[in-house]
Computed example of a mutant assay.
Amino acid sequence: MLEWINDFGWIIWLTVFLLLAVAEMLTLNLYFILMSVGALASLVAFLFGAPLWLQIVIFCVVALATTVLIRPLALAHLRRGPADQLSNVDRLIGHHAVVLEPVSTNSGLVKIGGDVWTARIRDGKEIPMGAEVEVAAIDGATAIISFPTVHKATGTAAIIG
């Protein structure tokens, strides 16, 4: 068995690299991709004739070093920009929506922009189909909606619901 590993170790390191890369694609947390760099370093060490114990040490050292040194820099780069900048579904809060199916505290459908969302209201009476509403919050894949109203004295909008 040890002889096979010495002859075909590149297959093992390539497999480890591919498995770690697939794990990274599934998790997207920047751990597995950095560990896969360690597998590539060990593959290169194998190709230069390093013994198995050295290949394992290289894998461990490179995986640990990239995780400790590169991951914080990569995460900081990904989080660049103003802290108050909204992303993803947070951008939908405050947008107008049209009710496609009556919305109650339990169920309903609304169209926000070009997308159809499940919706509900926190409390109050059912909102009929065709009503124009405003997104007050997002709870998972459900939009929490309310009626926008305009204050007569100030002319500003407020949310009821």
Rank of each mutant, 00 (worst) to 15 (best):
L86K: 10
G108H: 06
I5Q: 07
L78T: 01
A74L: 15
F48C: 07
G155S: 11
V37Q: 04
G49S: 10
G113D: 13
I12P: 03
I5H: 01
V89G: 07
A131P: 04
M129Y: 10
I160K: 05
S42Q: 04
W13H: 01
T15D: 00
I58M: 00
S146E: 05
F8K: 01
L28E: 14
R71K: 13
E24W: 15
Y31G: 01
N88M: 08
G94T: 07
V62G: 05
I127L: 12
V103K: 00
L43K: 03
P102V: 06
L2N: 15
P82F: 11
E132S: 14
E3H: 13
G124A: 11
G124Q: 03
D7G: 09
D84K: 09
C60W: 04
T142K: 14
G155L: 05
I93M: 14
G49K: 12
A97P: 02
H151E: 15
L75R: 09
T142L: 10
R91E: 09
T105F: 03
L40G: 12
L26D: 10
P51F: 05
T149K: 05
V98C: 03
V99N: 00
I56T: 09
T27V: 13
I138F: 05
L64R: 00
P72Q: 15
L47G: 06
W10L: 00
L52V: 08
K125L: 11
D90Q: 13
T66A: 09
E3K: 08
L73I: 08
V103E: 09
L52D: 08
S42F: 13
I33E: 11
V57D: 01
V99M: 07
A157H: 12
L75K: 08
L73E: 08
R120I: 11
G113V: 00
L69W: 11
A131I: 12
V61K: 15
E134N: 01
L69C: 12
I121D: 00
M35T: 01
T154F: 14
S36N: 15
G38T: 12
V99F: 07
P82A: 04
W53C: 05
D90F: 13
L54A: 13
A136D: 02
A136T: 04
L20D: 06
D123Q: 11
S104F: 00
T67H: 03
I127Q: 00
E132M: 08
G155E: 05
E134V: 15
L14P: 01
V99W: 07
A41P: 10
V68K: 07
I11P: 00
G155R: 07
I11E: 02
V16A: 14
G140Q: 07
Q85A: 10
K152M: 14
L86W: 02
A74P: 06
Q85N: 10
P148T: 05
A45D: 03
M25A: 08
G130L: 07
L54P: 06
S87D: 11
F46Y: 15
S146N: 09
S87N: 13
A74F: 04
R122Y: 10
F48V: 13
E3G: 15
G130M: 09
R79V: 08
E3S: 14
V37D: 03
F8D: 09
V68P: 04
L69M: 12
V62W: 06
T156R: 13
V110Y: 01
